[in-house]
Write a protein that binds this DNA or RNA. Sequence first.
DNA 1: TTGCATTCGGTACCCAGGTACAGGCTTACC
DNA 2: GGTAAGCCTGTACCTGGGTACCGAATGCAA
Lengths: 149, 149
Amino acid sequence: MMSPERAGLRTGEVAEQAGVNIQTLRYYERRGLLAEPTRSNGGHRLYPADTVALLNVIKTAQRLGFTLDEVADLLDAGRRRHPTPDLRQGAIDKIAEIDAKIADLTAIRGALTEVVDARCDSLTNCTCTDCPIPFLTIGTAPPPDGDTT
Amino acid sequence: MMSPERAGLRTGEVAEQAGVNIQTLRYYERRGLLAEPTRSNGGHRLYPADTVALLNVIKTAQRLGFTLDEVADLLDAGRRRHPTPDLRQGAIDKIAEIDAKIADLTAIRGALTEVVDARCDSLTNCTCTDCPIPFLTIGTAPPPDGDTT
DNA sequence: TTGCATTCGGTACCCAGGTACAGGCTTACC
DNA sequence: GGTAAGCCTGTACCTGGGTACCGAATGCAA
């Protein structure tokens, strides 16, 4: 179906393997998330093989609530051999942010577990004596973009 | 500032305390995330005091990558005293989803830690022998809405 | 009871993240 | 060389999640 020595994957191949729309590849290229790939003589894009993995990273980070700009930052941070102080600080900030997300997810998870076990009257108005009412305690850390404009 | 015996909080009070726009409250009401509050004789909304906490829950869940529809589901699940089998299964599914998110966040966190420690050459193309290259392993679980249309 | 701040409903608009379509060129295979 | 499938650029459109603005009505304090 395809000769393995070809210079790269075609748009359609990458899109199918990564489960994204072809248009999305071009969109990510415009947004700077994907580097401009090489081209065939006729102008068709030829992607390196690891593009599919990269797309999975992007999609996963998105599902976790990072914006495309943030994903670009994450990837950028990851691409330097020895991060500049700026990038280093950025990474440290991201770690704190991620820790907060994990804590909140854990709280929600606990609440749902209570639901499954049917131990709570209600997640939002619980009368159990031993219930931490986790839903009401999550999000106590201010959001990273904590503006009140 | 306000008499404590009043029947509820006004739109502006809730919005300010929760750090959201007034329009957002009405939007959430339309979306079914907030129940229709009682009204004053003149038709102004009067919210119960726990609305602010509920809004914090909603905002937090959103930051974690849940859509408003999903948040509505989560809240719905949490409001039943004894969940129906359907809701129960929904909660179980959500828990699995949350576990996947936590795993992915943990992987990203590990990658960022490597960056901060400057132990890796690159997150996406690392030559360290002991590097798990976490960025390339996240997202291995299919997304919850795993469609390929 | 006057008057300013708030809220009302309704509609229009905004941004992020995609997705679709048109019309023309490339690729690949017979 | 013909031809179908695939890809090109460009532009227009869509969905989710809000925001802004309008003129009218309400709340509330002096």
